[in-house]
Write a protein that binds this DNA or RNA. Sequence first.
DNA 1: TAGTTGTTTTTGTCTAGGACAATATGACAT
DNA 2: ATGTCATATTGTCCTAGACAAAAACAACTA
Lengths: 313, 313
Amino acid sequence: MVNSGPEITASPSLAGISIAAVERDTGLGKDTLRVWERRYGFPKPLRDACGERVYPAEQVEHLRLVKRLMDQGQRPGTLLRKPLAALSEQLAGSPSGVGADDTADWVIPLLKNRDVDHLRTEFAQRLARDGLERFVIETVPALNRRIGDGWMTGEIEIFEEHLYTELIQNQLRSSIYALASRGRRPHVLLTTVKDEEHLLGLLMVEALLTANGASCLSLGAQTPVADIIGACRGTTTDIVAISFSGAYPWRKARDTLLELRAALPERTELWAGGAALASRRRMVPGVRAIDDLRAITPALADWHATHTSGSHT
Amino acid sequence: MVNSGPEITASPSLAGISIAAVERDTGLGKDTLRVWERRYGFPKPLRDACGERVYPAEQVEHLRLVKRLMDQGQRPGTLLRKPLAALSEQLAGSPSGVGADDTADWVIPLLKNRDVDHLRTEFAQRLARDGLERFVIETVPALNRRIGDGWMTGEIEIFEEHLYTELIQNQLRSSIYALASRGRRPHVLLTTVKDEEHLLGLLMVEALLTANGASCLSLGAQTPVADIIGACRGTTTDIVAISFSGAYPWRKARDTLLELRAALPERTELWAGGAALASRRRMVPGVRAIDDLRAITPALADWHATHTSGSHT
DNA sequence: TAGTTGTTTTTGTCTAGGACAATATGACAT
DNA sequence: ATGTCATATTGTCCTAGACAAAAACAACTA
């Protein structure tokens, strides 16, 4: 058991943190961490008196960098054999890093100062000025990128990222609630297959849909296919929208979509979005690909066009 | 690897599910499941062609029951040696089961029918009728109990519980947002140390506080102590409120509180709540125990009393 | 050229039993 | 009633081997 949260106790944190804490902080599984050590020689944690791994902060940082590059599609075997310096360079030249996206820089000092009230005001004002649609499509993604980069470079701490997520989610939720028009069509069921960190993305989609007059039900993340089908049965769901994270294997995504398409009634549309599908040229028949937030509004317009004439004739 | 999500694919789910899926569904760690099998002979999963564990649905149900009773303070060693029938009896006689709490029965059929609109309306109406305070203190806990029991007995599915949580959280969030009065004192920082499933509880507390004129900042779950301290530095936080889940060891909770008390400025109050502290007779000096939702309003009143006179003299 | 299929390499997760520290329990002293 | 100690329970960590799923690459169609 050792110490399920060494960051709780003050003293041992100087030396390093336990494998469980690394799992929580980096998102890399315990088994994975051990097998990397065996295969690639990194990470190479110290050991405490009882032989248990103790990861110095430096290695945890390195792991974070690796994770970040893996999320961009790089492979562990390649990354773990390179020295730290080479990795930092790679990140600098990476798609997320290129944008001279100074537009979102203002958020950093506010976060560092824990200026919650100011942040809330700033979000609300920008939303009011630009409108929900532009806010979701431009501002929020820019902020997300800026925060992600800041976290990587150590500019901001994990906690500050949490704080940002919390505040921006609240802003979106309240906007959605204010706009929600119960009962209006289409009824959209929103969900994700792969877990975590995409809740914000889902919320962004929900905001766009709601702003365009749809009424949404978000099931959150991790909904099994059987439950999605179950949720539609006996209800008037018009569209099922699923988001696949970038890391989600294409083949599985395709199978999931095929299964869903077969199980859902024909009149229920199926929309698929997320990074996993962005590069795909051909989509599963009967499924609409939403490869960009901008694609949502036209897709909804199409639905309306089809269904106002369709239900009339 | 077998099948990281056997519930996704249709066919193999007939036989059973993988250890990873059981971990996700029951919350019991993989290591724990294996060591129980070794020590107590239960669970005793089948094996697939490659020797990997395959848990039949029946055993997963049994495990859920065990988990439920453990959450009530029972010990694994005792529970795992008893037959299934004995466990079901125990649950029937347990505190959660006793209440002839028919008041919340209405929620079940609505959930079974996926009658989302009706559920939303019902929540909103009851909230308007009883007021936020009574809604949070009476209605929501009754609903939670009813849902928990329904889940245990198989009356409702996991997905329906998710749906309930989603809807009730949305209701609370929008109420909080409507009431939020930025800048009013006291400023309360809300968080949890142990993860998941207590977000709803935290939201309930936030609702009560906001209803009584406090302005809250919820950091969500899993905030490390260092971050809590960091979050207070440089801000005008008047109260830090932490919730400890029932399973959280008392000793650790005490240490955490001691550490926080020492690190926070004296003028910042420290409130601790949650099942882990409910039975404790003595609290850490300088920490206020909130052992019931009802205790929140008087505690806030006390703060106001202290601080209006205190800041004057 | 674009898409499907088959082959090889990479990679994450599983398995086994042993170990041990953190917790709960119960007896005792204050 | 509350604190301290011994004892029992229990979750997590350890090692090292194995193998299926996924990615990358190659070959084959339309």
